[in-house]
Simulated assay, not measured.
Amino acid sequence: MSFLQQEFCDRPAHPPIGGAPVSLAEATAASPTGQPQQWCTIGPGIWELFLNGIATSDNKAVLQWYEPNTTSVDPHAIITHTYIKEVYFVQGGLADVTIGRGWGLGSYAYRLPGMKHGPYKASPEG
């Protein structure tokens, strides 16, 4: 798999709160690389900016942004993955509803394949 060199010094601006949804297909359609180059919606009030890897696979690097007070797709659904997931918070925070614990600015989390987590609720800052 080839990776693209992509760098930025400032955090990319997130979409406006309540912005019109943008599908992965829409974000990819206008891209000369065949990879999305704008924020996509992955659930109501949840956005993802593709950074590198393969956008349609689990092998990718992304930024996610939850609009303020957004709860992940199903507020009762436990989440698991078949891949390792690493999370670093650069703004606001999330609370894991199931375990009753939250993380904020500067926090780091590591999830092994199959580890149960979520659902999440975003902080008032997003």
Score class of each variant (00 low, 15 high):
P75E: 12
A109M: 12
L63M: 14
I99C: 08
P16K: 13
T80M: 15
N69S: 15
T33A: 14
A77F: 00
I79K: 05
P16I: 04
T71S: 11
C9P: 04
P44G: 00
T82H: 09
M1Y: 05
L4W: 01
Y110N: 00
E26R: 14
Y110K: 02
M1I: 04
Q35T: 03
F8S: 13
G43Q: 09
V62M: 08
E26W: 03
E26M: 10
Q64D: 11
V90R: 00
G114H: 00
F3M: 01
S2Q: 07
S72A: 06
Q6F: 07
D74M: 02
C40E: 12
V22P: 10
L49N: 07
Q91P: 07
Q37S: 13
Q64V: 14
E48F: 01
I42T: 13
G126K: 00
H76K: 09
G93E: 03
G126S: 08
H81Y: 12
G34I: 14
D10V: 14
T71L: 04
A27Y: 09
Y83R: 06
Q5Y: 07
E26D: 10
A29N: 09
L49Q: 11
A30E: 14
L51C: 01
V87C: 09
A29Q: 10
Q91M: 12
E125D: 12
K85H: 03
Y110P: 00
A13W: 01
G45C: 05
G53A: 02
V97H: 00
A61I: 09
E86Y: 07
C40Q: 15
K85E: 05
E26K: 13
A61D: 05
V97G: 00
I84H: 10
N52R: 01
Y66K: 01
L63F: 12
P32R: 12
L51G: 02
P119K: 06
D10R: 15
S72I: 05
A55V: 07
P113G: 03
G43H: 06
C40A: 06
Q38T: 15
D96P: 00
I78F: 02
A20T: 15
I42W: 05
G19M: 10
A30G: 15
G118H: 06
D58K: 08
P44Q: 01
S23Q: 05
T71E: 11
I78H: 05
G34E: 11
G34D: 09
A30R: 13
M1L: 03
F50D: 01
V97S: 00
A29S: 13
L51A: 10
D74E: 04
V73I: 09
A55E: 07
A20C: 08
G106P: 06
E67L: 06
G34C: 13
S23G: 08
A13T: 08
L4F: 08
D74P: 00
G19W: 02
S123E: 02
Q64F: 06
A25F: 09
P32K: 11
R111F: 12
G118Q: 07
G100Q: 02
A95Y: 14
P21F: 12
T56C: 13
T56A: 15
V62G: 06
G34M: 06
K116F: 05
A61Q: 06
M115F: 12
S31F: 12
W103H: 12
H81E: 03
A29M: 11
S57V: 11
G102Q: 12
G43I: 14
V90M: 03
T80P: 13
P68R: 06
T70I: 14
L63Q: 04
S57D: 03
S72K: 09
W65K: 10
